[in-house]
Computed example of a mutant assay.
Amino acid sequence: MSTVPLPPLPADTGEPAQDYRPGGRSMVDLLADEHHRIDGLCAELVDDAADPGRRRQLAEVLTATVVRHLSAEEQYLYPTVRVAVPDGPTLADRELAADITLLTALRELTGTASADAEFDRRAERVAGLLRRHAAAAETDLFPPLRQVATDAELIRLGNRVEIAEEAAPTRPHPHTPLTPPWNRVVHPAVGMLDKVRDAVTRRRTYLEDLPLPRQANRRHR
């Protein structure tokens, strides 16, 4: 299997053995798992029988999760696809344009009260855009990337994705740079400001921060 030109990564130390495998998870496996988790959040978000307060919290957590996810993809997945996959520039540009649409839809969703009738429509729109996002990755991006990249390369990229997500924004900013090198400069700075706002407003940004649904709380009394 041939190697691929990688986005900037920490230099390897020494000369690794032919079968060397770094610790961590493949970028493809990591992002695919995140797509599944995001789909689960969407399923609960679009349930109009759910408690409105919880749906509002779900919208905030989903937004933060997706924004972190997109930020990491824009820094490492798309640049790799662009240089390593046949028709990569066209695919990367297509997904970057779709990301702007998705970020705009997330901003509209979080700006809508969960009791507002418009919330349902906007939640369904976000869920549909996210299904398209995951399907495009699973169909057009991941299979050719697995063919051209080594396991070690994908793991090194996966490690960088995890680091990027920790520093990423948690709120949608569709007008900030989405392509390297500027997104690697702007995203962490915006991410730090978002985290300050989250702390001040006590905004939940991770699934594990959410309280159990009401019916689950009753079962655990």
Rank of each mutant, 00 (worst) to 15 (best):
D99V: 12
A127W: 04
V148T: 12
M192E: 10
A97K: 14
R94C: 09
R54Y: 08
A105W: 11
G128P: 02
R121K: 13
T80E: 00
A189E: 11
V186H: 02
A137E: 15
T110G: 00
R132T: 13
A115Y: 05
T101L: 14
P144Y: 06
I163E: 14
A164T: 11
T139V: 05
M192S: 11
T80L: 02
R54E: 14
D93P: 09
A98P: 04
L91S: 10
E162S: 15
N183P: 00
V81K: 11
R160P: 02
I155Q: 04
D140H: 15
A137V: 08
P144S: 06
Y78L: 05
L141C: 08
H133P: 04
V61S: 03
A50V: 11
L70W: 05
E165V: 06
G53S: 06
A49W: 01
V190D: 11
P177M: 02
A59F: 00
D87A: 15
T104L: 08
V85R: 04
H69L: 10
T170W: 06
V186C: 02
V66S: 01
E124V: 06
V61E: 05
L102W: 04
P177R: 08
L157H: 03
R146W: 04
M192Q: 09
I155A: 11
A123V: 01
R122L: 12
L109I: 01
G111D: 07
P79S: 00
V196A: 15
F119Q: 09
P143D: 00
A149G: 10
L70N: 12
A113H: 09
P52I: 08
L62T: 06
L106S: 01
D120P: 02
D140F: 14
E124Q: 14
I155H: 01
E60T: 12
G111R: 08
L145Y: 08
E138W: 14
P169L: 00
V185W: 06
I163L: 14
A105T: 03
L103V: 05
P180R: 07
A164L: 01
V185K: 01
A149M: 05
A164G: 07
E73R: 05
P89L: 06
T80V: 05
T150G: 10
V185H: 06
R55P: 07
L91E: 02
D140G: 07
N159W: 00
L157K: 01
Y76M: 09
H173E: 00
A127E: 09
V148G: 12
L106F: 03
P79E: 00
R160I: 01
R54L: 13
Q147E: 15
A64C: 08
